[in-house]
Nucleic acid binder design. Structure first.
Lengths: 146, 146
DNA sequence: GAGCCTATTTATAACTT
DNA sequence: TAAGTTATAAATAGGCT
């Protein structure tokens, strides 16, 4: 989207990174606002810059606190403790050796024991899988375009 | 952005609204992901559809809970902190199904490092993910049909 | 009614001042 | 360095299947 194609990795030049951050942050909020209005949705977006500054968007007429409050009340929502995040990281690290193979079979693995999921859980899972699928397709296309 | 210009107001036709919601939700998450990576930012996005379904994005490797936790601690935040923090603590205390959560998070992690995959690998992965998506949807439908 | 397609609109990277 | 401009990449509305 611009004079040149941009690789999806951290922009090393701090000045360029700051400029891009400023522009794209505005773009992201604009998009969020459009979805909220066009599709009658309630949206909250929080951004922390690398330097720790916070920016937020919340779809009118709700305050962002309201969106998060609703998030807390969502039936299947569980707030992960830091402990659990650490467990995730540890688990991912442990699996490093067979990481690729594991990823290949993860989709299969994931779908094998769905009995204990609620409808909301499954909807969330569905979304995450769709996003994964999107990313896989994107990556494949990138390779094909080379 | 499309065959016709769209007025910024709620799309009245429910079918069109749903289609637009689905497309733009994906677009919004993609944009958020790009900003997070390009600009080294931490981003959380929560969307509630008009029907109350929740969708979320959180920039890897952070979980969305982490973004919100940081939000609650931000100096400029001034809504009822005690109240909401208490709710968080309660939620965290009630949390007991980390296994399923972990599995759900895996989908997101899974797609994060695709650099080493060949096109053939990706096609296989794509097929497996699509199959998983199919099974998740099937299971969800079963629950809804009960 | 979920995908795929493509004409157009929109976002933005690099340029300019 | 910041603000405005423009060429180009990306998103997507409406069609089509």
């Amino acid at each position: 989207m611009g004079r040149g194609k941009v690789e999806l990795k951290k922009i090393e030049n701090p000045t360029n990174r700051q400029v891009t951050f400023s522009k794209r942050r505005m773009g992201l909020f604009k998009k969020a606002n459009e979805v909220a209005i066009l599709c009658d949705a309630q949206i909250g977006v929080i951004i922390f810059s690398g330097s720790g500054r916070m920016y937020e968007y919340s779809s009118p007429p709700w305050r962002i606190a309201s969106v998060f409050d609703r998030y807390l009340k969502a039936p299947s929502t569980r707030f992960e403790e830091m402990d659990i995040q650490q467990k995730i990281v540890q688990e991912m690290t442990r699996m490093n050796d067979e990481r690729n193979r594991l990823r290949m079979i993860m989709a299969q693995y994931m779908a094998e024991d769905l009995a204990s999921f609620s409808v909301q859980d499954l909807s969330n899972l569905e979304q995450q899988i769709e996003f994964s699928l999107y990313k896989v397709r994107l990556r494949k296309q990138e390779l094909l375009d080379q």
